[in-house]
Structure formats: C-alpha cells, structure tokens
C-alpha cells in the first residue's frame, strides 16, 4: 500500500500528514491529528457523529478519505469555541441539558453550526430537517432542538451587536 502525503487546513491551521489511502478523514483526525472530538458512531454515513465541514460544506468524515483532504479547509468541533469562549451552541447545549452520554454531541454541534451559518433564524421544522442526519440514542432530540433554537437567538443578537 502506498502512503499518501496530504497538505490541508484544519480549523484554520495548516497541517501536513501522511496516511494510508484506505484511511478515512475521521481516522486521520482522531488517530493521526489527535482531534478526537469527531466520533465514529456507525462508519456508514447514518449517524452524523463524525460530522465536519470540508470547504464549508457539512459532510460525514467517515465517508471521506484522508487523501481527499488535500488542499481543502476542514472544520471540526474543536474549531467551534473561540479560545476559552464557548460558541453559543455549546453554551446552550449545556444550559439546556441537550446531551447525556455526549457521543452524538460534537456531530450535532457541527451540523447545527452549518445550519446557523446559512440560516440564523430557522424554524423548528428547519432545525429538525437539518439535523436529520444526526442520531442521538439518549436525549429524545427535544432538548437538542431547543438548544439550537436558543443558540440561534444568541447568534442573531451577536450579529446585531456587530452591526451597531
């Protein structure tokens, strides 16, 4: 097997790595780059626990080869917080108790951020559709939807403040 050399950007940092051609981006993030926020729930695109963005587009990192990251911009849950300052989504997930075991949480956060980036004022239905690719075995989803709704409000407030 011939290893592949890859230059990419992860959460704004330029990163080079070498991986096997069969390794997924999720494998690379977790096993080579130490970014263990993204989780493997299924490995088949069904659960969304491995959600990341590639060039701003939400994807399942278990369905992307590490080699495909060449020259792309990867965003993971580790890039959500601004230093010690949690993203409104992270804060609202805590405040709304939108997690129990937490395995699904990074995926939900990344998917919800992709939603809010494109639509900072989603309806409940839009939130539920946007998160249909993320499975949670613990919470029953309701608290997750409420947390996203509350975070959307916070994000809109932040944006309004920035405009002033």
């Amino acid at each position: 097997m011939s290893a592949v050399q890859v230059s990419t950007t992860v959460n704004g940092d330029a990163i080079d790595f070498v991986c096997q051609p069969t390794e997924t981006l999720l494998d690379v993030l977790r096993n080579r780059l130490g970014l263990i926020g993204s989780k493997e729930g299924c490995g088949t695109g069904d659960c969304g626990a491995c959600s990341v963005t590639v060039d701003g587009q939400l994807v399942c990192s278990c369905l992307v080869l590490g080699a495909e990251a060449e020259g792309r911009k990867i965003g993971t849950v580790e890039g959500l917080a601004d230093g010690d300052k949690l993203h409104p989504l992270q804060k609202q997930f805590i405040d709304n108790a939108a997690l129990q075991c937490g395995v699904c949480t990074p995926g939900f956060l990344v998917a919800a951020k992709a939603l809010l980036d494109r639509n900072p004022n989603p309806t409940e239905q839009e939130i539920r559709y946007a998160l249909a690719g993320n499975l949670c075995r613990c919470t029953g989803y309701d608290k997750i939807v409420r947390a996203v709704n509350a975070a959307a409000r916070d994000v809109r407030k932040q944006q309004a403040r920035k405009k002033r």
């Binding site: 695109g45 969304g48 959600s51 590639v54 587009q57 939400l58 994807v59 399942c60 369905l63 992307v64 998917a111 992709a114 939603l115 946007a130 249909a132 690719g133 993320n134």
Partner: peptide, 9 residues
C-alpha cells in the same frame, strides 16, 4: 438523497 451531510458529497 440522504441527510445534509450526504447532500454535501
């Protein structure tokens, strides 16, 4: 086809 994640690919 699929979720938003799948749509992206």
């Amino acid at each position: 086809i699929g979720s938003d994640q799948i749509q992206g690919r």
